[in-house]
Design a binder for these strands. Structure first.
Length: 598
DNA sequence: GTAGGGTTAG
């Protein structure tokens, strides 16, 4: 008998807050208590989500034609099926549907939309069979205003109550990043089924609203709607991003218990969930179990190894992938280059960057260059890194400059740091992270005047630092902590005790990381209460002895916390997994899986 | 006959 699990919604408004606890056992189905959060369904849609349908046909013709016709004409006339362009001729509606469906399924979305418009021009009425594919095409093209017009036209044609059309509309708005509108359509649907729920859940994950996606997942289950493979893919994706391991495991159990098909989609989502939750062994187990694998699956495995500091395993996986005759793509090489970065494998990274172009004919994107700049910069090879940035065939983006700036911080390279920061701030003057990075470089060399100037610029421009936030799951409840939080006395006392103990082991707070020029004692306390340290103290207090402490942070871990965690893992004999914004740090016995490269 | 799915720099 599996453990009974209950689910609670995320409680908002408290400093330490519970997201959810894991769910019910698969046998007993998921017991969903009353909602505590109003985060999801009260989200008001943007005005005009249900625009007046009155002038629908004209709206389609006028607003859509001007937008689409100019873009489509060049390749339309050369297309293999120009028969519908005999404007003014009667067009058979069945033929139109057939052609639209064909174009949409082939990914020729502009063609699909264009045929739809021709139908309006010659007075052929579309039906639900026509709206569904054309809405899909509009969604893929991300044409918001066109989508609203087609929505209005569907209402006018009285087919918006159809479950297929409704689901297509949910998909349309979420694809256009208008998730509030998608939810409004969903709420107003007279008939819903599993597919409509899946469309909304997936929409929330695509819109990066992961906690809300899980709220919906819980609602769907409570409503007794069938949870399918597609549902689980969406929910697992949300778990992966949130680091919600216990819920992810529950879903895995459900898949096994209910015999859901571990196809490429679901298997890849599971592999990715375990990877992003730092559970590397479970990730490998799922991968081995899977019978159907494709390039997505391999990519999830390779980047999973990479972010968890298993660079060699990532490279071995790549070799196996090639042996199994799978063709790697750009994402595969991103994982490989990322693995080389985290392992500091400069020569290997250069080799794979070359292979990518020469053997596989893949043109490196800006993200591949980003990895190479990181690899070279973190290795202290600044001339090569700068040469690459200045000579690549793409315009350097802010991430490229920020990566170089980060390497300058690692190696205390103030002159190049200034140069990179100037380039970066030209492109991205309002991102606080850029100022903090440069300030950290100055602070390492006690350049307090420069820091004061930076602070003045930030104040003048009204730029505030992003608050550090760390979460930890204890007993199936996720607690969140904010940096310099108002601590409970017992957590503060424990942190003080830990610090005293660590000081005896030679730990001294790295006060150079404080953004401002402040008194030594204050500097120490500002890094002393970084959110990950608070989460760690809470974890030491509340988790069973010997269990792995898993913490997730929204920003990159600072050098001081990194040292702190290493010593805690040694002194307290605990394994600690810390996921920061870019990668995992697995601490054990006084060292970290990242080998201090991050 | 129409709708819903996975990987991706720092």
């Amino acid at each position: 008998m599996k453990r009974p699990l209950t689910l609670t919604a995320r409680a908002r408004g408290s400093r330490v807050r519970a997201y959810f606890s894991a769910s019910a056992s698969p046998e007993t189905r998921w017991q969903t208590p009353e909602r505590q959060s109003t985060a999801v369904s009260t989200n008001p849609p943007a005005a005009g989500a249900r625009a007046s349908p009155a002038p629908a046909r004209h709206a389609v013709q006028a607003s859509l034609m001007s937008l689409v016709e100019s873009r489509v004409r060049s390749d339309w006339w050369g297309s293999p099926s120009p028969l519908l362009l005999q404007l003014g001729e009667p067009i058979d509606s069945r033929l139109c549907r057939h052609v639209i469906r064909g174009y949409t399924s082939q990914g020729k979305h502009l063609h699909s939309v264009f045929v739809f418009i021709q139908m309006q021009r010659v007075g052929v009425r579309p039906d639900s069979f026509t709206f569904a594919p054309v809405l899909k095409s509009v969604a893929r093209l991300c044409l918001r205003e066109m989508g609203r017009s087609v929505h209005a036209y569907a209402a006018k044609a009285n087919v918006d109550g159809d479950v297929y059309v409704g689901t297509s509309l949910v998909n349309l708005y979420s694809g256009c990043m208008l998730i509030g509108d998608a939810h409004k359509v969903f709420d107003e649907m007279g008939e819903r089924n599993s597919v409509s729920w899946n469309a909304l859940i997936t929409g929330y994950t695509h819109n990066r609203k992961f906690a809300e996606a899980l709220d919906l997942f819980r609602e769907m289950q409570a409503d007794g709607v069938e949870l399918t493979e597609v549902t689980m893919v969406g929910a697992l994706s949300a778990c992966a991003h949130l680091g919600a391991l216990s819920l992810g495991k529950w879903i895995h159990e459900y898949i096994d218990c209910y015999g859901l098909s571990l196809n490429e989609f679901l298997g890849t989502a599971l592999v990715d969930m375990y990877a992003k939750c730092g559970a590397v062994m479970e990730m490998e187990k799922v991968f081995i179990t899977m019978r159907a694998k494709n390039v997505y699956t391999w990519n999830a495995l390779i980047s999973g190894f990479a972010i968890n500091g298993h660079g060699e395993a990532a490279l071995q996986a790549f070799s196996r992938m090639i042996m199994e005759n799978l063709k790697p793509d750009g994402v595969t090489f991103l994982g490989i280059l990322c693995a080389c970065c985290h392992e500091g494998l400069v020569d290997e990274g250069k080799k794979y960057f070359g292979i990518m172009k020469e053997e596989f004919g893949l043109r490196p994107g800006i993200e591949h260059y980003g990895c190479m700049v990181d690899l070279l910069g973190q290795a202290g090879l600044f001339s090569e890194a700068l040469h690459l940035v200045q000579n690549m065939d793409l315009k350097p983006d802010p991430i490229i400059w920020r990566t170089l700036l980060g390497a300058c911080r690692t190696h205390r390279n103030v002159p190049l740091g200034r140069y990179a920061a100037r380039k970066l701030l030209e492109l991205e003057p309002t991102n606080a992270e850029n100022y903090v990075l440069l300030s950290n470089i100055y602070a390492q060399d006690s350049m307090w005047d420069e820091i004061a100037q930076l602070r003045a610029v930030m104040n003048q421009r009204g730029i505030a630092k992003v608050a550090g936030c760390s979460s930890i799951e204890i007993g199936n409840v996720v607690y969140e902590f904010v940096a310099s939080d108002c601590l409970k006395p017992e957590v503060r006392d424990l942190l003080d005790d830990i610090r005293k103990e660590l000081k005896q082991m030679g730990y001294a707070a790295n006060t150079g990381l404080a953004l401002y020029d402040i008194e030594e004692e204050e500097k120490e306390s500002s890094v002393a209460f970084h959110s990950e340290k608070i989460a760690l103290a809470f974890g030491l207090m509340k988790s069973p002895p010997g269990s792995t402490i898993r913490i997730i942070k929204n920003l990159r871990v600072c050098q001081d916390c990194h040292v702190f965690f290493k010593i805690v893992s040694l002194v307290y004999k605990r394994e600690i997994s810390l996921r920061d914004r870019n990668q995992f740090h697995h601490f054990a016995g006084g060292s970290c899986s990242c080998r201090d490269h991050w």
